[in-house]
Amino acid sequence: MQQTKELNALFTLIDDPDVEVYSHVSERIVDFGKAIIPNLENLWENTLSEEVQDRIANLIHRLHFTDLKHDLIEWRDSGQHDLLFGALLIAKYQYPDLQTTPVLQEIEKIRRNVWLELNSYLTPLEQANVLSSIMYNYYSLKGGEVSYNKPDEFFVNKVLATKQGNAITNGIIYQVMCELLDINARVINIPKQFIVAFFQDDYDESTYIGHPQNKILFFVDATTGQAHSHNDIENYFKRIGATPIKAHYKPISHKRSLQILLEELSKCYHLPSNETMRNELQELVELLDA
């Protein structure tokens, strides 16, 4: 954005000690939108005061966050709800300058390797074994329990770059693969888990009125790619002292997957100094509910 007299005047007031003055100045700067970010970055580089640099950094973050909210609202209100695109939007919370092309290329590389190994004669379990073998053995994707000391494991761009994720991000990548390969598998609502269920080909959640468990062939733990039987899931419910109900076996929406991702990510920022980040992530959760 071209530097104007108004911008110059506003920038000279960023260091004003009067809270009310700074509040007015910051709101006016944010009103310019993300086009002003390069100007702010240049100002940051040429500022010696750490306090003023912090204020500039905060303004840049506010502009990125406002832009992210706009994009997430567009995603929410679209008819597609592309899961990968939604997860990449969440990654832009931490990495606002994220370039999505390398991520899409990595996803396409995995998809193509799996596709080359699939054929119409494979059973769903054999398809799952091929997918898991490519993702976790050939591609070397690793997964572990959700750790609130490792926020990067909640961002799909970092997971694909480092090949280290958690149950949620690995599950999102696994479901994205299934969708790209026309495999009828979805994340379901098992408590404290992010489990992918492989459904019979004729299962359609919008029309099927029976118990969805009856249409599930088997389950896959996307943390490791290991397949599980119905007995395995029933034993899990016994271990946690819960009674399985119909809702547990229903596929969760892509919006809900992103909400879970955001809710769990927010727990990484548990220190009092990170209260703003927790509040912002909760704001994104609620925005997806609207």
Rank of each mutant, 00 (worst) to 15 (best):
I188S: 09
F194V: 11
V159A: 03
P151L: 06
S147F: 06
N129G: 06
F155H: 05
L40H: 08
K192G: 10
K255T: 07
S23F: 10
L125V: 00
A222R: 02
I29F: 02
I209V: 07
F198A: 01
A242E: 10
I37S: 09
P251L: 10
L98P: 14
D77Y: 10
S147K: 13
V187I: 14
H254D: 06
I29Q: 01
L287K: 12
L122P: 12
T100M: 05
E108L: 13
K215Q: 14
I260C: 06
V25F: 11
V159E: 01
T224V: 04
S133L: 00
I172F: 10
G33E: 02
K5M: 08
V21D: 13
Q2P: 04
L84T: 10
A9L: 02
N279D: 09
F198M: 00
D202Q: 15
I260T: 06
N166V: 15
G171M: 01
N119E: 02
F237Q: 04
L271M: 04
G143K: 14
Q213P: 06
N235P: 13
V285C: 15
A290D: 12
Y136P: 14
N274I: 03
I73F: 13
G86N: 11
N58V: 15
M177H: 03
Q80N: 09
L63I: 03
P212C: 13
V114Y: 02
N279M: 05
M177S: 01
V114A: 03
Y121A: 15
T4K: 11
Q226A: 13
D202N: 06
I73T: 15
V114S: 03
H230R: 08
L10G: 08
G210C: 10
I60Y: 10
Q226D: 08
E264Y: 08
T162R: 12
L118W: 15
G144I: 04
V220P: 02
Y148N: 06
F194Q: 03
N58T: 15
N46R: 12
F237D: 09
E280N: 08
G210E: 09
A161G: 01
I183N: 08
N58P: 09
L118E: 05
A57V: 14
L262V: 01
D182I: 04
S132I: 04
A167V: 07
Y139C: 01
E45Q: 04
R28Q: 13
H270I: 15
A247N: 15
V187L: 06
F219L: 02
A9V: 00
L265G: 02
G86R: 14
S133W: 05
E145F: 08
D202A: 10
H70K: 07
N113G: 15
A222G: 08
T276M: 09
E153V: 08
A227G: 00
R278C: 07
N235I: 11
N170A: 14
L59K: 03
K142I: 00
H228G: 05
L141V: 04
E50A: 07
T101I: 12
A57L: 03
G144W: 00
Q99Y: 03
S229R: 08
K5H: 10
